[in-house]
């Protein structure tokens, strides 16, 4: 026993400073993480838990009944009214994502192929511009642009494409257009960065083997930029799910999506409906992110 102790002693003497440095290395990242962790806990996890608790209560005749019940969940799952809201939200998010991709992918490609740095800089700034402008200002801008007597309708009429005005605003069209506009940078930049990661020699190799532009794009560029596309879908779709101001302003009361429903429920102090609405949004977002990650893994394998 005593022999073992003496034998161990020198090892301990050496080990102490090493151990202490290891301890410091372990603690430093946690210290740096602490503020954000505290914020997450206080501003996200705790409210979510409270929400979760509220989701099991019921709201009857303007009063909150603090008893465990699955009534609100049942309504969200089986009541046609709530089903419509959930499906409309998904539909709006899907349309927005598709439109943002349809505009964003060619834009990313153009940004990638531009040779002059100053043109690249200006194009990046233009892509970024919707974020720089306040959402309220931007929404009023779209309302003016898309109004029945607005420039877009005037142009459509002038080109002889329509007789009467096309309603472009205070409906889903206006909401989707405006959302796709503001999500453009979130779509363009992940795709652009996946393009810059492609070895330029790969496109040359395809051309050298007889592929023209279209074939090179289809067989090389597009498959290799899919990770960027998936990331873009993830961001655009989840952002669209949570969009509030744009559907509120450009929807004209006709586009009832989940965040609006949550807002309305909160104003009525109907906490259970607001809570379940919020949780449904969260679950959809998590599902989309998980599905995209799955796709990403599949496309890389």
């Amino acid at each position: 026993m005593s022999e073992a102790l003496t034998a161990a002693a020198p090892v301990v003497a050496v080990a102490v400073p090493v151990h202490r440095r290891g301890w410091r290395q372990k603690v430093a990242p946690w210290l740096m993480l602490a503020p954000s962790l505290a914020l997450m806990l206080y501003a996200f996890v705790l409210p979510m838990l409270t929400f979760f608790e509220y989701s099991f209560y019921t709201f009857r005749r303007g009063k909150l009944i603090e008893e465990f019940s699955l009534t609100t969940y049942r309504r969200f799952l089986f009541d046609a009214y709530y089903q419509t809201i959930v499906l409309d939200t998904l539909w709006m998010a899907a349309l927005t994502t598709v439109l943002a991709l349809a505009i964003g992918y060619p834009l990313a490609y153009a940004l990638w192929r531009l040779e002059r740095p100053w043109m690249k800089r200006w194009l990046s700034l233009i892509i970024f511009s919707p974020i720089i402008v306040s959402v309220v200002v931007r929404s009023y801008g779209w309302i003016v642009l898309l109004a029945d007597q607005g420039p877009v309708n005037w142009a459509l009429k002038g080109l002889g494409l329509t007789n009467g005005p096309v309603s472009l605003v205070f409906n889903l069209t206006g909401v989707v257009l405006s959302l796709a506009h503001v999500f453009l940078p979130f779509v363009v930049f992940p795709i652009y960065s996946s393009m810059t990661r492609i070895d330029p020699a790969l496109r040359e190799a395809a051309m050298d083997l007889g592929a023209g532009w279209a074939r090179t794009f289809r067989s090389v560029t597009l498959p290799l930029t899919l990770p960027g596309v998936v990331a873009a879908v993830q961001i655009a779709f989840t952002l669209a799910l949570g969009a509030f101001v744009t559907p509120a302003m450009l929807g004209g009361g006709r586009v009832l999506v989940l965040p609006l429903q949550v807002y309305n429920a909160t104003s009525d102090i109907n906490w259970p409906v607001a809570a379940v609405g919020g949780l449904v949004l969260l679950v959809i977002a998590i599902l989309v992110v998980a599905l995209c990650n799955r796709l990403l893994k599949y496309s890389e394998a």
Binding site: D199, A201, L202, E204, A205, A206, D208, L209, S219, V220, P223, L224
Partner: peptide
């Protein structure tokens, strides 16, 4: 009628 073997081979990774 030429084909090239590239410096870093440029194989299509996918």
């Amino acid at each position: 009628p030429t084909n090239m073997v590239f410096q870093r081979w440029a194989l299509f990774p996918h």
